Simulated assay, not measured.
Amino acid sequence: MASTFSFDIVSDFDRQELVNAIDQTVREIQARYDLKDTKTVLELGEESIVVNTDSEFTLDAVHTLLQTKAAKRNLSLKIFDYGKIESASGNRVRQEIKLKQGISQEVAKQITKLIREEFKKVQGSIQGDAVRVSAKSKDDLQGVMQHLKQEDWPVALQFTNYR
């Protein structure tokens, strides 16, 4: 039997689910009466989504649609980082939505500090854009998971490599 157990805290999303959510959003835009003639375009890049539409009103409607479709596909809305709205050619508006992946150093430090203060028998260590949590007892690790789920973090947290 292993002497210590561990898991990793990461901030990631399923890219295929995001592709499906964007695809469903585009289909609904083409089908909805109020959005059909707006010539709205959603482009998924490597690290962002670019929305090009005819007004800020339709941009808000596209945001709502995208968030609804993402939530139905179990994607956290915290992965979207909305940029500023820019004017595009032909009286259109354009917005870049960055996709957040990985835990920043500041958030990782906050997580490890919280683990140190709340759980004396558990160790947290920062490993790149993830946090490794280890302890001698699986019950302690599950307590850490429950505590972290109750907090409101600026990024979406997932727990992986539980062993």
Rank of each mutant, 00 (worst) to 15 (best):
F119D: 07
A108N: 02
K39A: 12
S89W: 10
F80C: 00
F7T: 12
Y162N: 12
K113L: 13
Q110H: 11
K78C: 13
I97D: 08
R163I: 11
K100Q: 10
F5V: 04
L141P: 01
K78Y: 04
Q142Y: 14
D139C: 01
Q158V: 09
A71D: 07
E151D: 14
T64N: 06
S76E: 07
Q150E: 15
S76P: 09
E106C: 00
T58V: 07
D8A: 07
D60M: 03
S3V: 15
V107C: 12
T53V: 11
L157I: 10
V51N: 08
L99V: 01
D129E: 14
N161T: 06
E28S: 06
A71F: 12
R163W: 11
S125H: 13
Q30G: 15
G83Y: 02
V144T: 08
V50P: 10
A21N: 07
Q150S: 15
S137C: 02
I103K: 10
T40I: 07
E117T: 14
F7W: 08
T58H: 12
R132W: 07
S76A: 07
Q110F: 05
R94S: 11
Q150R: 15
D37S: 05
M145N: 00
E43H: 03
R27F: 09
N161I: 01
M145R: 12
Q150C: 14
I115V: 14
R94M: 04
L77F: 09
D60G: 13
Q95T: 03
L141M: 11
D81K: 03
K138R: 15
W153R: 00
E17K: 07
K100C: 04
L157D: 08
Q158M: 13
Q110T: 03
G128M: 06
Q24I: 04
L44H: 00
Y33T: 07
D81T: 02
T38V: 00
V41Q: 05
Q158K: 14
R94P: 07
F7S: 00
S3C: 14
M145G: 06
E118M: 00
